[in-house]
Each structure stands twice: as C-alpha cells, then as structure tokens.
C-alpha cells in the first residue's frame, strides 16, 4: 500500500515539475517580467518537492528537498526585496546624489558664499 503511494506520488511529482516549467514559461511569455514567472515556477517546484517527501524517503532525498526549499525561499525573498525597491523609487526620478543643482543656485553660492550671509 505504502509502495504504491510512493510510486504514484513519485510519478506525480515529475508531472508537477513539468507543469512548473510550462507555467513559468507561460508567465514569462505573458508578463515579460522574470520576477512573477520565477515565483510561479518556484511555487510549483516546491509542490513537486513535497510530493517527493511522501512515504519513507532516504537522507539524500530529505537533504535535496530541504536545500531546494531553502534556496527557493532565499530567491523569493530576494525577488520580493528587489520588486519592492523598484516600486518605491518613482520612474525617472533621479536619486539625491545625482540631482544637478540649478545654475542660478550655483552662481548665487559663488557670489555669496555661506560665510558672507
């Protein structure tokens, strides 16, 4: 009974991994943004990894699944952080260090330095 379950879930994990690749490719083709596509791919790959853990897996399977899950969270965290920083910066707005001073301001500072005010 248990061996049948392991065989079925093993086969289904491969199906889910294939679904992950197709869905990730579709998301990339539709949105043209790697962030959401990678998120979709990783979510479904985690589902495939969970199916592989059903039954009595050996140490190698446990270690591989644990590493994949940890990597997946690291990548997702990095992606979310990157997206958030992109959203918080207005498009086309220069940062504080690159903003050029207006010419009138520069001339004013040259003619009337701070110590003369």
């Amino acid at each position: 009974m248990s061996s049948t379950l392991v065989a079925v879930t093993g086969a289904m994990s491969q199906v889910v991994a294939a679904i992950a690749v197709v869905s990730g490719g579709l998301a990339l083709a539709v949105t043209r943004r790697p962030g959401p596509a990678l998120g979709v791919l990783l979510d479904l790959l985690v589902a495939a990894g969970l199916l592989r853990l059903v039954g009595d897996p050996d140490w190698q399977t446990i270690a591989v699944t644990g590493t994949v899950v940890a990597l997946r969270h690291l990548i997702s965290y990095g992606l979310r952080l990157g997206e958030r920083s992109l959203e918080e910066t207005p498009r086309g707005a220069p940062g504080p260090t690159t903003r050029p001073r207006p010419p009138r301001d520069i001339v004013g500072r040259l003619l009337r330095p701070a110590w003369r005010r």
Binding site: L5, M12, V16, I19, S23, D43, L44, A48, L50, L51
Partner: peptide
C-alpha cells in the same frame, strides 16, 4: 498528496 496534486493542477 491528493490535495497538493489537485492544487497544482488547478493552479
């Protein structure tokens, strides 16, 4: 396993 498979296919 059934819940995970159904969820993956549904998604």
């Amino acid at each position: 396993a059934a819940v995970i498979i159904i969820g993956a296919v549904w998604a």
